[in-house]
């Protein structure tokens, strides 16, 4: 496990420890008094439907986070993940509507998101633009373009509805209490777990992954070793588009529609993804776990809104996951950014 969650996890262990402690305390209280408020809260936290909601909410964040890890590990900070999610959520529905096939729609979304990431890569790597500004531009372009496309094609910010991905149910396993939700989930959830595994393996075990890390830490070392730094960075940024595209498509197909009002249906998930991979210390497994923490709180928050457990205004309850993010960020100060993240590199320059 130390290999999976490498690094010096002091702050992270603390957060994980506190979360576990709260959980145990809730559990003990619930055992003592199952009908108390605390007991009912615990019942919500450990319910299979909360786990199912957590998984569903995690999907786009985890995909985008894995993509962000590749880009940033290679030295290109991709703050435009939000934009990639937006553009792929819209193009997924559009593609599915056009072709009549969800999976072709999925493909269209991945291509669109990868293309936008490619544009970002050209601007950042070839033309040496500031990565943060270019990333914000990606977000703003998508934020404008997707609802505009919807307006032109569907006559409103929301697209028409297409099918959802539905669920794939594994017999027997899906009947296990609580964890059954893991085996009665959307194909996107299974894809997410696969992406985490593939992402981790690629980054830590393959030659490409090693070059990505070297490109972000000391590009000159990689260059003098005879590997083209720009090509590695292009590949990594394109991968961030591919993963984000899968995230955006999964998000749209979870309800079968793209909604483009205000911050669109993506609603900050791309930015949460950045927090998730920073908290996960650029490790896909860590990003999955930190996303689960956030999405879990979000799921609980959604359930709390429908109960009469507390007489708290909904808008206050809705802030729970975001407060958690701020607390988490306060502890995450020790994340070690890749040494050359955000820096341009040109071969032969002193």
């Amino acid at each position: 496990m130390t290999d999976l969650l490498d690094g010096r996890p002091s702050g992270r262990l603390l957060v994980a420890g506190v979360a576990a402690l709260v959980f145990v305390a809730l559990g003990v209280a619930a055992l003592v008094a199952p009908e108390s408020q605390v007991g009912r809260l615990f019942g919500i936290v450990v319910s299979a439907s909360t786990l199912a909601a957590t998984l569903r909410l995690s999907v786009p964040i985890v995909f985008a986070a894995i993509g962000g890890i590749f880009a940033e590990k290679s030295g290109v900070i991709n703050i435009g993940l939000e934009g990639l999610l937006i553009i792929s959520a819209f193009t997924a529905v559009f593609g599915a509507d056009l072709t009549g096939s969800l999976w072709l729609g999925y493909l269209v979304a991945v291509v669109a998101s990868t293309a936008l990431a490619g544009l970002f890569a050209v601007v950042c790597i070839e033309f040496r633009a500031d990565q943060i500004i270019a990333g914000l531009a990606v977000w703003l372009i998508a934020l404008g373009l997707a609802p505009f496309g919807s307006q032109v094609i569907y006559g409103g910010p929301n697209t028409k509805s297409v099918d959802t991905l539905g669920t794939v149910t594994v017999p027997v396993l899906s009947d296990v209490p609580f964890f059954g939700a893991l085996f009665d989930a959307s194909p996107a959830v299974y894809l997410m777990f696969l992406a985490v595994a593939v992402g981790w393996y690629t980054l830590n075990r393959t030659t490409f992954g090693r070059w990505v890390r070297a490109a972000g830490e000391n590009p000159k070392a990689l260059d003098t070793a005879g590997v083209d730094v720009s090509r590695v960075r292009y590949a990594a940024v394109l991968l961030s588009g591919t993963f984000s595209g899968m995230g955006g498509a999964s998000l749209a197909f979870s309800i079968g529609q793209f909604t483009g009002n205000g911050p669109t249906m993506v609603n900050g998930k791309g930015f949460i993804a950045i927090v998730a991979y920073l908290f996960g210390n650029y490790n896909p497994v860590g990003a999955l776990l930190s996303t689960a923490l956030f999405a879990g709180l979000d799921a609980v928050q959604l359930r709390l809104q429908t109960t009469d457990l507390y007489a708290l205004p909904d808008s206050l309850v809705q802030t729970i996951p975001f407060v958690a993010v701020i607390v988490v960020l306060a502890f995450v100060g020790k994340t070690r950014l890749p040494e050359a993240a955000g820096e341009h590199y040109e071969s032969g320059e002193e």
């Binding site: 030659t207 090693r210 830490e217 000159k220 070392a221 990689l222």
Partner: peptide
């Protein structure tokens, strides 16, 4: 020209890594 967070062997073999499993 070393990549600080990597191991000694990773640095020495960078760009010339011995490979297995289809060269990936």
């Amino acid at each position: 020209m070393l990549v600080d967070p990597m191991t000694v062997a990773e640095n020495i073999t960078l760009g010339n890594e011995p490979r297995k499993l289809l060269g990936l």
